[in-house]
Every structure is written in structure tokens, then in C-alpha cells.
Design a protein around this nucleic acid. Structure first.
Lengths: 347, 347
DNA sequence: CTGAAAGCGCTTACAG
DNA sequence: CTGAAAGCGCTTACAG
């Protein structure tokens, strides 16, 4: 055990009391004589005695580890790092610790990590990795294990979640581009079995339709929701004969990749091609990047996620899933999409 | 308990065996008749029974939680996010989970987090937050609690660590600037009670001296090791009457702040001022940023840190601290510091 | 105010 | 191959 192998009985012996009494002072039970209490406290301090948390949990009626698990695609992605910080802060505030795992979007890794976490005994799980159909999460749900989904949802509504209105965010930012007089707008987006990608694509399409702009399939690039996709997608899009004048990067991380490609092609943002992202990570606000994007407030999303999870852990829900929050995204306009009515870009 | 409240005895009852036997199959003890084993395994699968990890740990001779704690300044800082990923990957590989905490460099937060982690029972701790004199770490060391320091060291050598040769990295990159014909070089760096900041400052100074360039105190900006410092420091430096022609940002994160300031002042990198950083985060390689920097390989540093920690956990060291690794940093030259022999910048 | 006893869910000699 | 028993370190009625 941390700090030595003393037990409650050792302390008891030294204090000439039963271990029961020591346990009482450890648990701030009032019915201990002030005098004996002092004696025991002194010993505890002297040896810096720490009761074994596991034995403690085991012996207690309500069995909690005060540990929550967090599954996310990649902690290096600034979007998730920010969210993780919100989760961490809120959790610690309530006396919980958080274990995190980066799955790289691979179901088999999720599976392995969840097993690992279960083995160490987490009280609940936060998933930022849900796909539309996710057997792991569905199983956990069926077992009534406490979980909450953040950012990404399953199909349906039978679970607790906190997400952003991705449809609206995408709709708005696409509309913003259209108002700036762009008509040829490409999009580079994650796979459609991820709710965020799916909804953003829908929002983009709807905005085009509402403005009588045909949706071109060749302007849509799908792939893994990673930076590399932005790079490859932009290369493809920008080398078309009839290339887009603007690109909607499905996330800031993807937009990072787009920027690399644009520079490599010797082009300029926004003169040759406008660019918008989604997430508003720290990167986007950099004065050299100045990416127009959609702010989700992922820190807050993380906080809300933990808050809900802790509620569920404390009182497991009877049946219906009542915790659902949909956050309002907000467009952050910067220079990466040029100026209003600037006229068409080269093509 | 996760997945239901079944115990080993429930399973035993159903299988008509003693709970001892069930425990045996759970622990892959070979001396169980194939037949009974199958029967039990079937039951375990059927009910998806999971033994309580805490009871398990409690009952075992060697008491391990397979949990390690990680203290770092801020998970949102890409440098630490990358390191965390290295730690996570290596830990999971060995069956460990990692709990992380962002301290924002505040000793009182470290203290609180470590208490929290101790309560949940971590087997060891990785610190990326050490200061030269750090009473918390020193106490843990005295208690022989398994810990390893990464990136930042205490004064002295009585502990295990994996760090980079910050002195050399800073020396080399400063020398690089000098070879490019810059003589007025400012530096924006963290507080000198953090080993990385201290060593980098020393490296910078030595490089200047070795090239007969006087060290000017007014070209040195100290402060908290954060992005904001870069912004403020650059504003200060660049508005001096006799301003530096080049700035050494003590970390990429600081360099990010410098870039913001430079742009805000309407200046250009590298024409008006050259810039170098330290860390080589993803941000720096972006084609619009192109920051010359020092690559530390923090992912690998994280991996090595866990590896050492696990070794120490498995066999606590007799006395001397034998795990010390110093990694060689490497300069990554990009365009943020202009071209060789380009002549002096404006001033 | 205090202690003896039972019990939390599991593992592991020990003895068949 | 299998089981009864002791024990891990702690908490908590129950009975003084």
C-alpha cells in the first residue's frame, strides 16, 4: 500500500483500542471519545497511515470506485484534449478520477480498453467514440451499466448523451459561405456511420438545396475522421478540372490537413480557395491560420457529460433515459473564407 | 458491480461445485477437470460474470491495482497530449490503465490530485510537472513510492527519470540562428525553477557566449510556461527601441503566442523577426506555420517513462536510482527563421 | 463511547 | 481433481 504496509489493526494496537474504533475515527463517526480520537489521529498522522481503498470499498454497502473511464478517438486531437480537460476538471471536483483511452476509432481497441477498465472497476464510462451502430455500447446499455455518450450518438434515443447540433452548425457555416458568394463548395468529412459526420453532411446538403445549389457527389470526400483525410481530400478536390472554390473541412483537424495541401499546391487561402472548419480548436484562432469555424464548446460538453454520468451512477435510472442535452454551436468568422461578395475565386 | 451482482458463490451454486473451484477456473488453474471447467465457463459466459477486481486484488498476495497516475501541466498542450498518448499506449500494452490529471503547474492541485489518486490506489506515478524543489515529489520519493519523472527533473539525481537534453537542444538551435547571421536574439522562457526552462536558458546563453555575443538581460523574458507568455513576451520584446531580430520561443506553445503577437503588430515572420520554438508539435509542421524547432520525441519519452515505472513497480529498487535516460533532441529546420546569410533583419 | 463478530468477494495454502 | 478454512483490510449493525 502507498506509504507503508500498516493496517488499521496496527494502529489499533498502538493506541490500545480495537480496530473498530480506529475505523470509526477514519470514517468520522462522532461517537468516539475526544481523547481516544486524538490519540488515534496522532498515530495516523505520525505514520501517515492510509486505509486501503479497495478493502474499504469492498466492505462498504455502496460499492464505488470513484473512477470513471473515458474513451475517445485520440487524445492528441486538440478537440478531444479540450473535452478531456473539461471532463477531468468536473470529475475531480466531485472526487472522481478519470482513466482515458484513445481508440483510434477501432472497435477492437474499444473492446479491449473497456475490458481493461472493467477489470480495474470503473463506476461508469463516457464514450466520445460512438458509431451509429455500436455493439459494445449497446451491450453495456443492455446491462444497465452507467454510460453517457458525448459528441457522437448511436442511432435512436435510448441512452443519455450530450452532443452539439451538428446539423445546424454545418447548415449555418455552409450558408455563410453561400452568402459570401461561393457556389462550388466541397466538403471533406468523416464516415457516415459517425453521427457528427452524418449530421454535418446533412446540414451542408440542406443548405445547398435551400439555396438552389445542386449537391455534387464529386465534391464530397468521405474517409476516416483524421487530419490525413483533410490533406488527401484537398489534394483530390483541388486538382479537379472543375474544382471547388471553397472547402468545408469536417473538423478543424481535417482543416489542418487541408491547409497543408493548399500550401503544398502553391495556392492561397482564401484567394484561391476558401476554407472553413468545425470545432474552433486553439489552432484555428492562431493569427496565421485564422480559420472560420464552428465553436462547439467542447470543454463544457465534457463537463456536462461527467455531471450526467455521476448522476446516473448515484441513482441508476429506473428506465427511460432522461439526460439529453443538445448544445447550440456558434459560427466563428475569421479570414479563411475571404470577404463578403468578393466575387468568384479562380477556376 | 459491472454487469450484475453475481458472485463467485452464485456461479458455484449453479454449477454444483465449491466457490473455490470457480475461482480456480477464473485464475486458469490447471487442476480442474475439463468437464467441470466447461460447465463453469458456460455459466460464466451465460451471465457474463465478472469477478470483483477489488476483492480480487485484496485477496491476492501481490497487491496491484494496475493503475498508474499521470500528472502533467495541461492535457490541452499538444506536447503533453502527445506524451500522454505514448504513456497510454505503452501502459495498456502491459495491462495498465492510466489516470491523468492536469495541474496547471499549481502545487496545491498536484497535492490534491495525488491524494485522490492514492485513495483510488494507483501502483505508481509519472510526473511531468516537477520543479527543481518539489516537496510533494520529494516526500513520495522518501516513502519509496514508485515514481518516475519525465521531461522535468528535480535538482539532483536521486530519482528515476527520462528527459531530453534541453541544454544541447537550446544550444544548437541558438547556434543555428547565429549561423544565419542573427545576433540580437531574444528568448521567452519558463521560470527557472523548472529544469527544462532552466537548461534551455543556459544553452541559449552558452551559445551566445561561445560566439562572442553578449547576453542581454532585457532580451530575456521569464514567466509561466504558457502560450500567453509568448504573446505578452513578444509584444514586449518587439516594441523595444532596440528590438531583437530573432526570438527563441521556449516551447512551441509559447511560439504560438509569439506568432499571434507578431501578426497583431503587423509584422512578418521571418522578414521582420525570425522565430524558433521547442518541441516540434503537430502545430509547428503546419505548412502555414513552418516553425523551426527542436524535436524531442515526446511520444517515445512517454513510453520510456511507463516502461521504467512498471519495472520499478514490479521490483521495487533496493536503493540507488538506476533508471536515467537522456534523449537526444534534434533540430527541425523550417522557414520561420529565414534563409542563411540573409543579412540583418530590420531594426 | 467501545468492542466482538460477521461479512464484503475473492484467493490460496492445506488436506484430501 | 476438489473442498473447507483462513485470510486480505476494512465497515457496520448489534450489544453492551
Amino acid at each position: 500500500m502507498p506509504g507503508g504496509k500498516l493496517t488499521i489493526r496496527d494502529i489499533a494496537k498502538m493506541a490500545n483500542v480495537s480496530h473498530t474504533t480506529v475505523s470509526r475515527v477514519l470514517n468520522k463517526d462522532s461517537r468516539v471519545r475526544e481523547e481516544t480520537k486524538k490519540k488515534i489521529v496522532k498515530l495516523i498522522d505520525k505514520y501517515d497511515f492510509k486505509p486501503d481503498p479497495r478493502a474499504r470499498v469492498l466492505a462498504m454497502k455502496v460499492r464505488k470506485s470513484r473512477l470513471i473511464g473515458l474513451l475517445l478517438p485520440d487524445i492528441r486531437n486538440p478537440f478531444y484534449a479540450e473535452m478531456a480537460r473539461g471532463i477531468e476538471d468536473k470529475a475531480n471536483e466531485d472526487g472522481y478520477n478519470v482513466i482515458f483511452c484513445s481508440t483510434d476509432g477501432k472497435p477492437e481497441r474499444s473492446e479491449a480498453y473497456v475490458n481493461l477498465m472493467m477489470r480495474t472497476g470503473v463506476d461508469g464510462l463516457i464514450f466520445a467514440t460512438a458509431r451509429h451502430h455500436d455493439s459494445l455500447i449497446e451491450r453495456l446499455l443492455k446491462e444497465k451499466f452507467p454510460i453517457v455518450l458525448v459528441s457522437r450518438k448511436l442511432k435512436g434515443e435510448s441512452f443519455n448523451y450530450v452532443v452539439f447540433d451538428n446539423f445546424k452548425g454545418a447548415y449555418d457555416i455552409t450558408k455563410h459561405l453561400i452568402e459570401l458568394n461561393y457556389k462550388k463548395i466541397g466538403i471533406i468529412i468523416g464516415p457516415s456511420n459517425i453521427s457528427t459526420a452524418y449530421d454535418r453532411l446533412k446540414g451542408y446538403q440542406k443548405a445547398l438545396k435551400d439555396n438552389d445549389i445542386p449537391v455534387r457527389q464529386d465534391y464530397i470526400v468521405h474517409g476516416p475522421f483524421e487530419k490525413q483525410l483533410g490533406y488527401e481530400g484537398a489534394k483530390k478536390l483541388l486538382q479537379m478540372k472543375d474544382r471547388p472554390e471553397a472547402i468545408f473541412g469536417g473538423s478543424d483537424y481535417i482543416a489542418m490537413g487541408v491547409i497543408d495541401a493548399v500550401e503544398e499546391l502553391g495556392m492561397h487561402i482564401p484567394n484561391d480557395v476558401a476554407l472553413v472548419g468545425f470545432d474552433d480548436t486553439e489552432f484555428s484562432s492562431n493569427k496565421k491560420i485564422n480559420l472560420t469555424t464552428v465553436s462547439q464548446g467542447e470543454y463544457r460538453m465534457g463537463q456536462l457529460g461527467v455531471q450526467i454520468l455521476i448522476e446516473v451512477i448515484d441513482k441508476p435510472e429506473s428506465s427511460p433515459y432522461t439526460h439529453k442535452v443538445i448544445l447550440e454551436p456558434q459560427i466563428i468568422v475569421r479570414e479563411s473564407c475571404g470577404h463578403k461578395l468578393r466575387g468568384k475565386a479562380a477556376d
